[in-house]
């Protein structure tokens, strides 16, 4: 079984927001890694999960499915999911799939954090 080619670091930037830094591929293999990262990032006070796609190498439809799953879980926790660092191509895919309706896209971490504070 091939190994997941992805690393996810979680940063608890404040009591209400956490950042998941994604490095590598978001595909079917990334499911346990992403869910583990979400578990780390999601505290009782967390209201926003910020996904950092700056170092995203590849994402396929399975990866989009994972994001939908993440959004479903976050919604259950009344959390918002935000994202930044997406390339134009993945922005386009987010737009096509309308994922950007449920994951707010920002150009940078600063912008995302500012949005969380608002």
């Amino acid at each position: 079984m091939p190994q997941a080619n992805v690393v996810m670091n979680v940063r608890l930037i404040d009591p209400t927001a956490s950042v998941i830094d994604i490095q590598g591929d978001v595909s079917a293999f990334a499911e346990p890694v992403l869910m583990q990262a979400y578990a780390q990032a999601s505290t009782p006070t967390t209201r926003a999960i910020i996904l950092n796609f700056t170092e995203l190498a590849y994402m396929n439809s399975s990866g989009i499915g994972l994001l939908v799953t993440l959004v479903i879980r976050a919604n259950r926790q009344e959390q918002h999911v935000l994202a930044y660092g997406l390339s134009d191509h993945y922005r386009r895919i987010f737009a096509l799939t309308r994922i950007d309706d449920v994951i707010s896209i920002y150009p940078s971490e600063t912008a995302a954090r500012a949005a969380v504070r608002r």
């Binding site: 439809s61 989009i64 499915g65 939908v68 479903i72 895919i93 096509l96």
Partner: peptide, 8 residues
């Protein structure tokens, strides 16, 4: 949540 392939 899956099933995006052909759409893409």
């Amino acid at each position: 949540p899956r099933g995006w392939g052909l759409f893409l």
